[in-house]
Simulated assay, not measured.
Amino acid sequence: MTYRILFVCLGNICRSPTAEAVLRAIASDHPTLKVHIDSAGTSDWHIGEPPYGPMQDAAQTRGYDLSRLRARQFVVEDFDRFDLIVPMDESNLANVERLRPNRSTTRVELFTEFARDTGMDHVPDPYYTRNFDETLDLVEAASRGLVAELMR
């Protein structure tokens, strides 16, 4: 079975593309785990743009390449395309749920649920905090937690 996972943040230029690249790298260490990973934003501000330069630089320092990713907007059809939709914070969770079709049973889970031991209830947006390493630390921890759950 291939798990279809979509990460969602506001602009799809920092947190969600980083999560897409990090999960792809961590999942690749588990050859029996089959995943299709994508990311999207709840806003239309950056459609078609690459991830934010400073986020790309911080990710590259840890070996993650975000350069080929391009921002897209979350759409209602994503509920049919993915098994798990993973927003980065409560605001994006609310925006995703507002679009949920009545018939949809697609699982939607905050990313920090996979890294409860961090004590964080959301992934801070480094576009505003400027703390790209904090975001990467949390994304790596949550990605490891998500892979562990998928491997069960």
Rank of each mutant, 00 (worst) to 15 (best):
residue 117 D to P: 13
residue 87 P to G: 04
residue 114 F to N: 03
residue 12 N to C: 10
residue 91 S to T: 06
residue 63 G to Q: 14
residue 13 I to W: 05
residue 67 S to H: 06
residue 146 L to F: 10
residue 67 S to A: 10
residue 88 M to D: 07
residue 149 E to K: 15
residue 36 H to M: 13
residue 63 G to N: 13
residue 145 G to L: 08
residue 111 F to V: 03
residue 34 K to L: 12
residue 28 S to E: 15
residue 32 T to D: 08
residue 88 M to Y: 05
residue 82 F to R: 11
residue 118 T to P: 10
residue 15 R to G: 00
residue 10 L to S: 10
residue 50 P to S: 10
residue 13 I to E: 09
residue 99 L to P: 02
residue 52 Y to T: 04
residue 16 S to Q: 12
residue 132 F to R: 06
residue 64 Y to P: 06
residue 76 V to C: 12
residue 53 G to E: 14
residue 70 R to S: 00
residue 28 S to K: 14
residue 136 L to Y: 12
residue 36 H to E: 15
residue 12 N to H: 09
residue 27 A to C: 06
residue 142 A to C: 15
residue 101 P to L: 13
residue 64 Y to Q: 10
residue 51 P to S: 02
residue 73 Q to L: 07
residue 61 T to K: 15
residue 93 L to I: 07
residue 57 D to K: 15
residue 152 R to A: 15
residue 105 T to H: 07
residue 131 N to A: 12
residue 136 L to N: 12
residue 24 R to T: 15
residue 106 T to L: 00
residue 16 S to M: 12
residue 33 L to Y: 01
residue 21 A to K: 02
residue 69 L to T: 02
residue 114 F to K: 04
residue 31 P to S: 13
residue 15 R to D: 01
residue 145 G to F: 05
residue 59 A to E: 04
residue 66 L to C: 11
residue 97 E to Y: 01
residue 26 I to Q: 08
residue 115 A to V: 11
residue 104 S to P: 03
residue 19 A to P: 03
residue 122 H to W: 09
residue 25 A to Y: 06
residue 91 S to L: 10
residue 35 V to Q: 03
residue 96 V to A: 02
residue 68 R to Q: 13
residue 123 V to P: 00
residue 10 L to Y: 12
residue 31 P to R: 10
residue 131 N to M: 02
residue 55 M to D: 03
residue 80 D to R: 13
residue 124 P to H: 07
residue 93 L to C: 04
residue 23 L to E: 01
residue 104 S to M: 03
residue 104 S to D: 01
residue 51 P to D: 10
residue 43 S to I: 03
residue 38 D to Y: 08
residue 124 P to N: 08
residue 53 G to P: 09
residue 127 Y to W: 15
residue 105 T to V: 11
residue 90 E to R: 15
